[in-house]
Simulated assay, not measured.
Amino acid sequence: MEPPVGSFVMDGHTFIRPEKAVKSMRDMPLWEKSEAYKELMTFILMTNEVVRGKSLSSEIQISDKIKRLTALLDRLFEIVKECPPINQPQRFGNKAFKNWYEIVKSRSASLLEEALSSEVHLAIPEISVYFEESFGNSTRIDYGTGHEASFIMFLCCLNKIGYFDNCDKTAIVCSVFYRYLELVRTLQQTYKMEPAGSHGVWSLDDFQFVPFIWGSSQLLGHSIIEPHKFLDEEILAKYGKDFMFLSCIEYIKCVKTGPFAEHSNQLWGISAVPSWVKINQGLIKMYTKEVIGKFPVVQHMLFGSLLSVQPAATPFKSIF
């Protein structure tokens, strides 16, 4: 019987540096049947459930562990100040991002040692790789759902080694991940980052996906914000800071111009879905098909001892 997520025992475990394993389309079934796939999706569904009906401003317990992780992300905001954009001919892909990324990469081990309690420091050589890959590509100066997935894998690893307590689960999303979302938005705007592998108008969003999943779960059962209202300016003004889904819509409206139905057709179509339950379930299906079901994303994923490419004893099967 496989241990539940979060019950990993570190004693005697050998951590390894994660490496790529899905190198061609022929390897996709290996990924879809792997321990890593099951761990990632189980973690996403677990957190999807714990944030159900809870706003970002809900009274949730913020432990010292959560505070230290958000403080870690705050440090990365400070590094942005050390690396202001440079003057360059091209409009997009400001090369100052390379400086930011190199500083973060050079300091990641020490930053994680400071942020994480000593009992999990042995895992840092492995989990630091997921952390470093969470903020974009320093060569292409782009960011996409693969980088977002890397940060979720970082959180998933922490959960697997037992770093989080049960009382931390809601704050993983509402505090740590949301702070990460604010950080990568700052990086996107400061360094004019390109979308990685964008499908243009037919994609859900240029940069993110999972905040729409968790954000729709937050809105389940809301008495006022029905799906057809999430584009309403009054709703966004009143509730945009309370719900991640609405925060994402606000961000899109800030960075894109023109009719919403034209630049964000998929999201505009979602507003016609009758319930947040159907939206939430549909987004989970879409994520497995259009993000982690696509080779251009998965070819960059990394696999180690915590998120292994080895076959799971019982492969993940979606409940939707």
Rank of each mutant, 00 (worst) to 15 (best):
F8E: 09
D11Y: 15
I16S: 07
R17V: 03
K23I: 08
S24V: 07
R26P: 01
P29R: 05
W31I: 02
W31R: 03
L40C: 13
F43Q: 01
L45C: 11
G53L: 11
G53K: 07
G53P: 14
S55K: 02
E59L: 13
I60H: 14
I60C: 05
Q61R: 11
Q61M: 09
K67H: 12
K67W: 00
R68I: 01
R68A: 08
A71F: 02
L73V: 02
D74N: 07
E82P: 04
E82I: 06
R91G: 08
N99C: 08
S108F: 05
S108M: 06
S110L: 14
A115E: 11
S118I: 15
H121G: 14
L122W: 09
P125W: 05
E126S: 11
I127A: 09
V129C: 11
G136I: 11
N137S: 04
S138H: 13
D142F: 03
Y143I: 02
T145P: 04
T145R: 12
G146T: 12
H147V: 09
E148Y: 06
F154C: 08
L155T: 08
K160V: 14
G162D: 13
D168S: 14
A171H: 04
I172L: 15
S175R: 08
V176L: 06
L183R: 02
V184K: 09
L187C: 06
Y191I: 07
M193E: 12
M193K: 05
P195F: 15
S198W: 08
G200H: 13
V201F: 06
Q208S: 07
V210H: 00
W214T: 01
Q218L: 02
Q218T: 03
L219C: 03
H222E: 13
S223T: 06
P227A: 11
H228I: 13
D232E: 10
E233F: 08
E234R: 15
I235W: 01
K238T: 04
K238M: 03
K238G: 01
Y239W: 01
L246F: 03
L246P: 00
I252Y: 05
K253M: 11
C254F: 13
K256N: 12
T257V: 12
T257W: 13
P259C: 10
F260Q: 12
Q266P: 09
I270Y: 05
I270S: 00
V273A: 04
S275C: 13
W276L: 04
I279M: 07
Q281Y: 11
Y287R: 02
E290F: 04
E290R: 07
G293N: 01
P296V: 00
V297Y: 00
L306W: 00
Q310S: 15
A313T: 09
A313P: 03
I319F: 08
